[in-house]
Nucleic acid binder design. Structure first.
Length: 455
DNA sequence: TTTTGAGTTGTTCGA
DNA sequence: GTCGAACAACTCAAA
């Protein structure tokens, strides 16, 4: 009897270092490569996310010799249908740990579809790193140590002479979504991922510890979208790192991604829910005009506005900027973190639920290892410190292009500062910082009330 | 079980 | 301008 396997491409749009793909090719005389496109999700995604995914799928299809099947729908409907139409004898995939993927797996299992899972998008699969007593870590540093001790397998090579099934024309719905006119979308795909990584090794990695915090220079790896879609596997990256301190700082960033995936795995409600539940009771402001100003990059705080505009024109934002704008939304505008997280998810091409939700919760003070409550980012100080010459701001906020150097951080102090179309500050930071601290005092006090008197 | 040390990313204030 | 201390208390991990 003939064997034909199905490989379900999910967040692993690559051929190299893909053990699940090797398992699929081993299991069949030929193999159908399938990506399942949920158009409902795509509909709700921002333009850059869509364009990036389309680009990545085209790259993958080319690498497969034009044999990538793409079918629209939900995995729980598409996969059983494909199994019967192509007479599939075994199904293979990497395991997912994000809420959507986990739901797909459960729905397929319920229908009795047997999937052989091999590996995950992490060096160490979520749930594997445990304390000696078997429970999960809730603090990063001990997690990191245990993760290092746990270790991970070496990368594996791309398949040699794979035999893929030619899909029917009706299963070739590879979208042609384009990025918005004038936007600057990062190149997607496995080849681009390796090009990015190699150029980062050559010119960025050894100074990563110093340069990664300066949004105005290209000091970061730009690997986040590639990791998001699995165009490169983290263990491929880890295998190239040495023991130097710059490399160690970068390794720790990879570990943060793994830590947050582990936390989300153990507390699945924290994708949109509070990790620290007492913060739910805090007084927040409804997102209104100020929230819109934040989204549009019109808060009157140059570093915040530059960052928010970078997000909209590139589908990406520097990590330092993410913290600054997140702090501003939560602590200066008193808007709940979920509104900001959702805006990020729509625009970011590296939109990862675990990293995004927990990054936001860290800033908001309600996450794991959260920032102390009294730590409120000062957008002017952050600008002066991390964009000292204002290069980053001038790149994204042309209204301030006429201001030299450090003058750019406080345009309201200059006589003609507001005469070039730049907006006035929507709030006063010093005032809102105190307001934020006062609201935090309220939930601290509330915690001490007996349960029947709590709000 | 108890104890102890530690904990991504900062700001402000006063000397 | 620079520097160190204060900003709290709590939870977590590990001995």
């Amino acid at each position: 009897m003939a064997t034909r396997s199905l490989f379900w491409f999910r967040r692993d749009l690559r051929l190299q270092d893909n053990p699940a793909l090797l398992a699929a090719l081993d299991a069949g005389e030929d193999c159908l490569a399938l990506f399942v496109m949920d158009l409902d999700i795509a509909e709700r995604s921002g333009p850059y996310r869509r364009a990036y995914l389309a680009d990545s799928l085209h790259e993958l299809d080319a690498a497969l010799g034009g044999k990538l099947a793409v079918s629209n729908g939900r995995a729980s409907e598409v996969i059983p249908d494909v199994i019967s139409r192509y007479e599939i004898t075994s199904v293979h995939a990497a395991q997912s740990f994000a809420p959507y993927g986990v739901a797909d797996e459960a729905a397929l299992a319920q229908q009795g579809i047997d999937i052989e899972f091999t590996g995950s998008g992490y060096a160490v699969a979520p749930g594997r790193v445990r304390k000696p007593d078997g429970t999960n870590y809730r603090v990063y540093t001990p997690f990191f140590r245990a993760w290092m001790t746990h270790g991970w397998r070496a990368p594996v090579a791309a398949p040699k002479a794979p035999k893929f099934v030619t899909p029917k024309a009706s299963d070739r719905s590879i979208p042609d979504w384009q990025s918005p006119v004038g936007g600057a979308l990062q190149k997607a795909g496995e080849a681009a991922a390796h090009t990015s990584f190699e150029s980062f090794i050559k010119s960025g990695l050894d100074s990563y510890d110093v340069n990664r915090n300066i949004p105005g220079i290209a000091g970061t790896s730009r690997l986040s979208p590639h990791l998001r879609w699995g165009e490169i596997h983290p263990r491929t990256i880890l295998s190239k790192l040495n023991q130097s301190s710059a490399h160690e700082v970068f390794r720790k960033e990879i570990a943060w991604r793994e830590f947050y995936a582990d936390v989300l795995h153990h507390y699945p409600h924290t994708d949109t829910g509070y990790y620290a539940p007492q913060y739910e009771a805090m007084r927040y402001d409804e997102p209104g005009a100020k929230f819109i100003a934040w989204k549009e990059g019109k808060t009157g705080y140059p570093i915040v506005d530059a960052a928010m505009r970078q997000l909209v024109v590139e589908g990406w934002m520097h990590n330092r900027s993410r913290m600054i704008v997140a702090s501003f939304l939560v602590k200066d505008l008193h808007v709940e973190w979920q509104h900001g997280a959702s805006h990020f998810m729509n625009y970011l091409i590296d939109n990862d639920v675990a990293s995004n939700s927990h990054g936001w919760q860290w800033t908001a003070g309600c996450g794991t290892d959260a920032s102390p409550y009294y730590r409120v980012f000062n957008p002017v100080e952050q600008g002066k410190r991390f964009d000292p010459d204002g290069d980053y701001i001038r790149k994204y906020v042309p209204e301030l292009g006429h201001l030299p150097g450090a003058d750019i951080h406080e345009p309201w102090t200059l006589l003609d500062g507001l005469s070039h179309g730049y907006c006035e500050r929507i709030v006063d930071h010093a005032t809102e910082r105190l307001e934020s601290l006062a609201r935090l005092e309220e939930i601290k006090a509330a915690k001490e009330l007996p349960p029947n008197q709590r709000a």
